[in-house]
Design a protein around this nucleic acid. Structure first.
Lengths: 202, 202
DNA sequence: TCATAAATAACCGATTCGGTCAATAGCGTT
DNA sequence: AACGCTATTGACCGAATCGGTTATTTATGA
């Protein structure tokens, strides 16, 4: 049923998709109305049904699209190259923010769908956001040695995870990307300076 | 019109208020329905109208209630006593979290109302969350001297503000208060140890 | 037991819901 | 210009839900 939609131009697809993602994210499945989505996308309500058949199918399409996009984003995660912990955190953060910029409503849609306990999200979310997974990806054993107190490394990492959530909130609330990222970069440098042994400082 | 409601027992008032706060916070003013609120509160829809007259009056009552609660919470902020910066941050965080525990839905309701750009919130929110205000309240000049690099103090404070937002998100998503606060306490100690000059460490 | 107050089920007109369909607008072909 | 074909939409459908009212039931207290 979705072929009609996929035949549209990429721009129009993106416009409609973003409108639908935003509405579902903001209001949830039941309270989001096709009328709202159509108005936000600048098309008629009938067209939405022409493209997707019904409300459920539209939601399912968005779900599949977001899961695929998420997997792709994580597959493209090649941050093992940088050898330093703080550089890796920085790189991962930049990647996350760039993704947030490129696909603005995916994160909030996923969060909203998770709140409605959509079953198929459980798996996709678990593999992507599992703290242990990200931990082994970012924090290596040899990183700890650079710390004045090696036992601090894990806690610093956990702090970054919380910090990332706070940043995401601020970004959603309209704060400018560049300003926040600049500040985050300064924070990283500061932490590195204060936590590393002198021999590992530039 | 609200006298009927205020005549109820405190527990029943709290139950109804929390249901209404949760519904308005989750769905916004327009999409939140009196039916939903009544069901969540375990009373009949007619009773809600009996207590508050109409939807707008209910919303206005919640708004007034939350603003009053917020002001009271900030008036009770007596954290000047502790002389150390990190202790002050810890105390402020505990206060914030205790408030979040005591009045679970106020924060999200205020956020939702702010998103709908309710005019009277502008003032109340500005005085309460203005970063400059909190900054002068928590970060004093003599604190900076304790840092190995005094210029780090302000950035550490900014980091705490972001961290607090991340913590709030996790708390809303159902993580346990005590676990998060334990971790935050550890983070504070760790930062203090790494940032302070040795002479200021216990 | 009875009067009174509190709570609700049933109901109201109006609006909005998801969904359909016939009419229209756009557009390449001849 | 007239045609045919398709993409798009305005108008419409019955059903559900909206905010709000009212008549009836339930609880209370003298």
């Amino acid at each position: 049923m979705v072929e009609k939609f996929l035949a549209l131009s990429q721009e129009k697809q993106a416009t409609i998709r973003n409108a639908a993602l935003a509405c579902f994210a903001k209001h949830g499945y039941e309270k989001a109305s096709i009328h709202d989505i159509a108005v936000m996308a600048g098309i008629s309500k009938a067209s939405v049904f022409q493209y997707f058949g019904n409300k459920q199918a539209l939601y399912q399409y968005l779900l599949d699209y977001c899961i695929a996009q998420m997997k792709q984003a994580y597959d493209a995660s090649t941050l093992d190259l940088n050898t330093d912990f703080f550089d890796r955190v920085w790189e991962a953060s930049v990647m996350k923010v760039e993704n947030l910029k490129k696909y603005p409503h995916i994160a909030s849609f996923i969060a909203s769908a998770a709140a409605e306990s959509i079953p198929e999200l459980k798996d996709a979310l678990f593999s992507a956001t599992s703290e242990k997974f990200v931990e082994t990806l970012v924090l290596h054993e040899e990183d700890c040695k650079k710390f004045k107190r090696p036992e601090d490394a894990l806690l610093v990492f956990r702090m970054f995870m919380m910090l990332a959530q706070g940043m995401a909130v601020q970004l959603e609330n309209g704060s400018d990307y560049d300003g926040i990222m600049k500040e985050f970069e300064k924070i990283l440098k500061m932490l590195k300076y204060n936590f590393y042994k002198e021999e590992y400082l530039p």
